[in-house]
Design a protein around this nucleic acid. Structure first.
Lengths: 233, 233
DNA sequence: TAGGTTCGGTGACCTTGTCACCAAACATCG
DNA sequence: CGATGTTTGGTGACAAGGTCACCGAACCTA
């Protein structure tokens, strides 16, 4: 975490513009709370690949992502990894507040998947805002709700769903408009919490059926329909 | 949810005794907050087996368990189940607050595993307490932290750990002092999020090695040491 | 004691995870 | 440019785990 910079608030037709307005749940905060939030936080930028928090590296602040994406994942002893969820621009790393206030360590780690710009809210300011503002509380608990729902979904998937279905879903999710996906088998395996070989085999099967075409690091979807049918059961 | 009853506060040598004192994080609340908490909540009892919350049955209150245990589990489309965590006396169903305040539905369900006595705190009171009291906030976020850690652990286990190890752990966990376990294979399978047959086969193997003895609904541990060695790797 | 239910055992089969190893594609650097 | 190391993905063999179908024994309970 580096490159602290002053908040970029500015005047525009009499209205003060700030990163706060990019957060749906925060844009209607009453002026004093809003000011408190802005003055109490620092906008930071971190380069791609930075480990923002992790085992033995407890988060010091609540981060509200202005730009970029944070990937939260877990690594097993044996080295296999699984992606738990992603935090996108306009969202917050809210689960870290649990250990912010409880001083507990999490076993997951957060990695800047792209360059990230974020507002960092120190523990004390966060606590004060929760106390002061109904809207801020609503914002925090709504964010919690979404994350916990995500975790339940992950558990459901890894415990109960078949790999071919999950892989098809993931391909459709990652494909851009022309149906191409820039991802290695290794990356896909991490997304799904499985082994690389399993992904390779499954993709081989999709390729055999002419649903996809592969080259190193790139997968091209040839027939969307059967993938969709498989993904949606 | 039934059997509402007045709070059983009483005098004892000049000190008011209440269920609040059974909660480590709440016993040091300042008097006004404490009173607010007591007066704003209702002590309820629910019989064993009651579904306290679930899909389509959003929780109406935050429950603080005075007595008994609540099992929180998830069921797949195919009918397989997995236990996510348990809430014991002195703890709270705190994850429900996320949907309490966000009006979201979760896919998990909570079941009274025994008869349960609990203090039910309505949404508005909960919100007010969070606003008023640092200690209550600390209590809430600490509880969150523990639950989320539990969920991360569950994900780690089902994604990365071997069944024989997990089963050995579970047996040791459930065994009473003389090493006997009252549980059907079906129950154990739900605990671990696997199929009954897998548990049966694995237990068969443990039996073949003379580590356990089985009869209908009961497993008796004969040799603890090898199970411990397996469980701890 | 008859009938229904729950519990556990079993074999066949499929999917998923692990291990060992290899070759092609790519990157780097002299 | 060629030599070298790294990343990526392919492959086969095998082990572990999940699914299906079916069975008999144990246990209600009426």
């Amino acid at each position: 975490m580096c490159c602290h910079s002053p908040d970029m608030a500015g005047h525009q037709g009499g209205v003060i513009v700030s990163w706060v307005d990019q957060f749906p749940g925060l844009s209607q905060l009453p002026a004093p709370v809003r000011d408190h939030l802005i003055s109490g936080s620092t906008v930071v930028t971190v380069p791609e690949g930075t480990v923002i928090f992790g085992p033995g590296k407890p988060p010091a602040n609540l981060l509200l992502l202005i730009d970029g994406t944070v990937r939260v994942q877990q690594t097993s002893d044996s080295g296999r990894e699984i992606v738990l969820y992603r935090v996108h621009a306009g969202e917050s790393c809210v689960l870290t507040t649990a250990c912010l206030l409880a001083y507990e360590d999490y076993s997951a780690e957060g990695i800047a998947e792209t360059a990230v710009r974020a507002a960092a809210i120190p523990r004390e300011i966060f606590d004060r805002l929760v106390a002061e503002s109904v809207d801020f509380r609503r914002f925090v608990f709504t964010a919690y709700s979404k994350r916990i729902t995500d975790l339940f979904l992950v558990i459901d998937e890894i415990a109960f769903r078949r790999m071919d279905i999950r892989l098809a879903q993931k391909l459709l999710e990652l494909a851009d408009v022309d149906g191409s996906i820039a991802a290695t088998h290794r990356k896909l395996a991490t997304e799904l919490g499985t082994a690389r070989e399993v992904v390779s085999r499954q993709l081989q099967e999709f390729q055999r059926r002419n649903w996809i075409m592969q080259s190193r690091g790139i997968i091209q979807i040839l027939e969307r329909d059967p993938l969709v049918k498989l993904a949606t059961g």
